[in-house]
Design a protein around this nucleic acid. Structure first.
Lengths: 236, 236
DNA sequence: TCAAAAGTGTTTCGTATACACCCATGT
DNA sequence: ACATGGGTGTATACGAAACACTTTTGA
């Protein structure tokens, strides 16, 4: 059968915003663009969708090529389709986002690639509409994390309660009561207390916990409600 | 500056799922496709993105061309990008959805176009992946309506409490307690009671209400929580 | 011994839910 | 007079939020 001969084909790209947490700051992975236009300017991980791959496959491939990261689950944010967003040629970009434990991939990324973790509070000027892309991705992250326990993805396999609290505080840019926070966290049944303590961040030391993987999978749909008035944080 | 000469351009389409409510049933607007492939099969409102328009503009234009509907606010659902989803030629489609008051546009649509309102419970076989598109759109509608008072968009300017309740029951496919429902609804301060009654659906008659437009705009972000356990309805 | 962070309990309040009867009216 | 759908109130339980002191230990 014939093609849709009268229609115009358009470049389609994917752009991936990767969030990471180092125990202290919420960061995003940025890269120095290696080609024109705007060569050497910062951007999120992006590339074109190829003829034989789905956008989601493209996102996975692009992330791997630019950072070496594999097996990272990404979700769509939204489509960025302004006609002039790329000055060279019209490109419609599909946004993706993901969140990972920084330390798990730290060496790998910084040794072999030019990607860097940048504090969410200190994002430099980015190419095109990438600033907006990160904003939208953060909004989706907040939305999702208000409803599901996804922020564990950002933590190492062993973590402390104060670390999780700091993470939530950074993501929502607000302070939380540690007594209420810890009670809610425990009531989820998602955590298993370990004997070991983290003595790096305090003299007394904080107990490490690990995720109860089974409970995590089964309770993923559970509303955590860690954030007072989550609706106030949701803008779309 | 040069184009991205080595890249492949791809057809980009938009597909719009329009929800409507006639006071009794939740429906979607479907159309008989006027061209091959799958001519005369049902589909949602779709068309290709043109070189000088954004996807959102394309959605607005396509909806207008196919149904005459104007000034309808649409939101993105997600991108449908499987390589073989359109057998003629690869096409990446951006999903949109909207909700409108059926009666407001009933005549206009049925007289001039081939679009028809079909009960959500009686969707026929659709072309390509359009069944999936409607599923995703319904999921987004539920998600959104659990957090924001958007379902008023589906109602006429004058409506009764039992009508709204029926609407919520259809959207969430579940039954609600009318005492609790009406109390919550009133507590939002979004409704203004009118003197007039709707005598069509009962002997006693139900009072009409209208939306307090100012309150609606200001409280749009307010979590309504009409639906018990909204998280159980949220799957993505 | 003191500074710094970890850890823990109780009370209060608001909101979600469950539940049953009377009202108005057209036939 | 009765059948049909509309409209209202109360009691209970649960979860969210506010709030302060003790513990541990390295310096």
């Amino acid at each position: 059968m014939r093609k849709y001969s009268k229609q115009t084909r358009i470049l389609v790209a994917v752009d991936c915003t990767i969030f990471g947490f180092d125990g202290e700051h919420l960061k995003v992975l940025l890269i120095k663009r290696g080609f024109e236009p705007e060569k050497d300017k910062w951007s999120v991980m992006g590339g074109f969708v190829q003829p034989e791959e789905t956008p989601s496959e493209a996102a996975t491939r692009v992330l791997f090529e630019l950072t070496g990261l594999e097996n990272i689950y990404m979700e769509q944010t939204e489509v960025f389709g302004d006609v002039g967003r790329d000055p060279i040629e019209r490109t419609i970009s599909i946004g993706y986002y993901a969140f990972i434990d920084i330390n798990k991939y730290q060496t790998q990324i910084s040794d072999l690639y030019h990607a860097e973790w940048i504090d969410i509070k200190e994002i430099p000027d980015l190419i095109f509409d990438h600033t907006k892309m990160i904003e939208i991705a953060l909004e989706k992250l907040r939305y999702k994390a208000a409803l599901h326990p996804i922020l564990f993805e950002l933590l190492p396999s062993k973590f402390t309660i104060p670390q999780i609290q700091t993470l939530y505080e950074k993501v929502y840019d607000s302070e939380l009561d540690k007594r209420n926070f810890s009670r809610k966290l425990m009531s989820t049944g998602l955590l298993i207390k370990l004997q070991e303590k983290d003595k790096l961040n305090s003299k007394k030391g904080a107990f490490f916990y690990k995720l109860n993987e089974d409970a995590y999978k089964n309770n993923f749909e559970k509303f955590l409600n860690f954030i007072p008035n989550p609706q106030a944080l949701i803008q779309d």
